[in-house]
């Protein structure tokens, strides 16, 4: 547990007036407020920090105590004294502020730093929820899947806060897409609706296919002779092998489209994109003298 410099967090000096502190806090709050920075963990962390700093510095008694003992919290006696004072103060503070209603919901704000808790006691401050929540808290989760997993609709069972939630991940979901599961967040208060569960999907791709929405791309090696003379080859698609006819004199880098062999369209399981194959011609190596001679003969003919 380290000393926290609340002045530094707010960017004010130690002689800053109450109104300076208030002004600076408000400015920073406008910048880092979680509602203005959705999905931004860094902003959320900063917002917690400035709230904690404001909690201490905007309150004359807290500030006095912090200035006096803050740095010396390690020195037992003075710190204990501060804690004892705090216990008394807390009683007063709570009775003074009873009934005050300020909304501080919408973000997880339960944790003030250990330093704050030790110095000023726990369970106070805005984390004491003066908020009047009605709708339950929204939960956010991440689900990591492989590309193969999202080729067909997947049934998954997730455990969120001890509750088992069955859900179907529709085939064709995109990396980074968010699924909302209604009513599976925290319970509502006094008959309010439950919060929702938001699941962000991360898709890892370890296959030889590259995905572009509903289309897939892959590269297939083609031996020189088949490329020149044509023939039949077997290629891997995402869900099995297919036989392909290769036309004679196929150039390196030629693209072939296999219709309907791509990825399913999200929530339209029966609609598939295309698979694009790029041929990469493999030049034979370690030629024998005989092979070399034949190539030279071919060369002379051109």
């Amino acid at each position: 547990m380290a000393f926290i410099d609340y002045y530094k967090i707010l960017g004010v000096n130690k002689t800053a007036s109450e109104s300076d502190i208030k002004k600076t806090y408000r400015k920073l709050a406008r910048k880092y407020h979680p509602d203005l920075n959705p999905d931004d963990k860094e902003a959320e962390r900063k917002f917690k920090e400035i709230n904690e700093a404001n909690e201490v510095l905007s309150n004359p008694e807290n500030r006095k105590k912090y200035d006096k003992y803050g740095k010396d919290w390690e020195h037992g006696e003075a710190f204990e004294k501060a804690k004892a004072e705090q216990a008394q103060y807390e009683k007063r503070y709570q009775s003074q502020n009873y009934g005050k209603s300020e909304s501080r919901g919408g973000y997880s704000d339960q944790d003030f730093s250990d330093y704050f808790e030790a110095m000023f006691g726990g369970g106070r401050g805005y984390s004491g929820q003066q908020t009047r929540m009605f709708k339950g808290q929204d939960f956010h989760a991440e689900l990591h899947l492989d590309l193969e997993d999202v080729f067909v609709s997947q049934k998954q069972v997730l455990t969120v806060n001890g509750n088992k939630i069955r859900l179907t991940i529709p085939a064709g979901i995109e990396n980074g897409q968010i699924i909302k599961i209604k009513g599976q967040g925290g319970p509502g208060v006094n008959g309010g609706p439950n919060g929702d569960l938001y699941i962000k999907i991360f898709i890892e791709n370890h296959t030889g296919f590259r995905r572009d929405g509903i289309h897939l791309h892959t590269t297939v090696d083609l031996d020189l002779y088949t490329a020149i003379l044509g023939g039949e080859i077997t290629v891997d698609t995402f869900d099995g092998k297919v036989k392909l006819k290769v036309g004679p004199e196929t150039a390196n880098g030629t693209k072939v489209k296999l219709k309907g062999k791509g990825f399913p369209r999200y929530k339209k399981d029966h609609e598939y994109g295309d698979l694009f194959i790029t041929y990469q011609i493999i030049i034979p190596e370690n030629l024998t003298n005989r092979e070399k001679a034949l190539f030279e003969e071919l060369q002379k003919m051109r």
Binding site: R26, R30, H33, D35, S103, K135, D138, G192, P193
Partner: peptide, 19 residues
């Protein structure tokens, strides 16, 4: 509608927290 409660809460927070 209950689906709009989140928006309402956000409005209230922005109004109260940030004036």
């Amino acid at each position: 509608h209950q689906d709009k409660i989140s928006d309402l809460e956000k409005v209230i927070r922005l109004h109260r927290d940030l004036n």
